[in-house]
Amino acid sequence: MMENRFGQNVRNELTNKGHKIDLKGSYSSGMGGGQAVMRDSAARVNYGASDPRKDGQAVAELPFE
């Protein structure tokens, strides 16, 4: 399975090596979906990321009520 954002040339090269390709949409839910947070503890700064293959998002808290 490959998302169609991989170019035609690359797909041809892989096919020539013997791989069978099942082409999917640009952001296929068949690939699953991820989330991530990152912390730089020296800078004390946090980062968040969320996969467009899903309904979700990363949300930051306000430091006060």
Binding site: G33, Q35, A36, V37, R44, V45, N46, Y47, G48, A49, S50, K54, D55, G56, Q57, A58, V59, A60, E61, L62, P63, F64, E65
Partner: peptide, 25 residues
């Protein structure tokens, strides 16, 4: 990316991420 000095929740639903953020706050 979402960038903050405070907490961040990344989840498959905005409601779920906000539920977590509320607890952090």
């Amino acid at each position: 990316m979402v960038i903050s000095r405070n907490g961040i929740v990344a989840a498959e639903s905005p409601l779920a991420a906000q539920a977590g953020v509320r607890i952090l706050e």
